[in-house]
Computed example of a mutant assay.
Amino acid sequence: MIEIRYADERGRGNHGWLDSRHSFSFAGYYDPGQMGHSVLRVINEDRVAPGAGFGTHGHRNMEIISLVLEGALEHRDSEGNVHCLPAGEFQLMSAGSGIRHSEYNASGSEPVRFLQIWIEPDQLGGAPAISKRASAVTRD
């Protein structure tokens, strides 16, 4: 059954440099009624302050989609990928057997806002991979 969950009902984590809204249980937000849906584990809306970001950390066995809604997000990873995703672009990171990466607001003056979506993969332990593309999302 599909349940409508309004934006103001989501979990929230505010760390000063990061203001995050969680659709499902994540980090310090725990709601046993919101543990994901099928293979969908995370939908976070993150706002990162200018010049701030997530330091290098690891993931494995997860498909992670980052869709930039406003601003620009800089990505660096242990596979040697370095790129900047402007608003309207998205990145798919297949963490596979393990990848380490960092994500930073590429601007020193404007915030970045993006969605991060985590999906469990069909197969575990594959080779890590990164791809990025322009999205079909348009703004009025």
Rank of each mutant, 00 (worst) to 15 (best):
M1R: 13
M1T: 11
I2K: 03
E3Q: 14
I4Y: 11
I4T: 09
Y6N: 13
E9T: 14
E9W: 13
E9C: 09
R10D: 06
G11R: 02
R12H: 15
G13L: 01
G13R: 00
N14H: 04
H15T: 00
W17S: 06
L18C: 07
D19R: 01
D19C: 01
D19H: 02
S20T: 12
S20A: 15
R21N: 12
H22W: 11
S23Y: 08
F24S: 07
S25D: 05
G28K: 09
Y29E: 05
Y29V: 06
Y29D: 09
Y30F: 15
Y30I: 07
D31M: 00
Q34N: 09
Q34P: 00
M35H: 05
G36E: 01
G36L: 02
H37Y: 15
H37F: 15
S38T: 03
S38N: 06
V39C: 11
L40V: 07
R41N: 09
V42S: 07
I43G: 14
E45P: 06
E45K: 08
D46F: 07
R47I: 11
A49L: 09
P50M: 08
A52M: 15
F54D: 05
G55R: 13
H57Q: 14
H57D: 01
G58S: 12
G58A: 11
R60K: 06
R60Y: 01
R60S: 07
N61I: 04
I64Y: 13
I64W: 11
I64C: 12
S66Q: 14
V68P: 02
E70P: 02
E70M: 00
G71N: 01
A72P: 02
A72N: 01
A72V: 00
L73W: 04
E74M: 06
H75F: 06
R76T: 09
D77C: 06
D77S: 08
G80Y: 04
G80C: 03
G80D: 03
G80V: 00
V82S: 11
P86Y: 08
P86H: 09
A87Y: 02
E89D: 06
Q91H: 14
M93T: 13
S94I: 02
S94P: 01
G96Q: 04
S97L: 02
G98W: 03
G98C: 05
I99G: 11
R100G: 01
H101C: 05
Y104M: 11
Y104R: 09
Y104K: 07
A106F: 02
A106I: 00
S109P: 00
P111W: 04
V112P: 08
V112K: 03
V112T: 12
R113K: 15
F114M: 11
F114H: 07
I117P: 10
I117C: 12
E120W: 03
E120A: 15
D122F: 10
D122R: 15
L124E: 14
G125T: 03
G125I: 01
G125K: 03
G126R: 14
G126V: 07
A127S: 14
I130P: 03
I130L: 13
S131N: 05
K132T: 09
R133C: 04
S135T: 13
V137N: 04
V137G: 02
T138E: 14
R139P: 00
D140R: 12
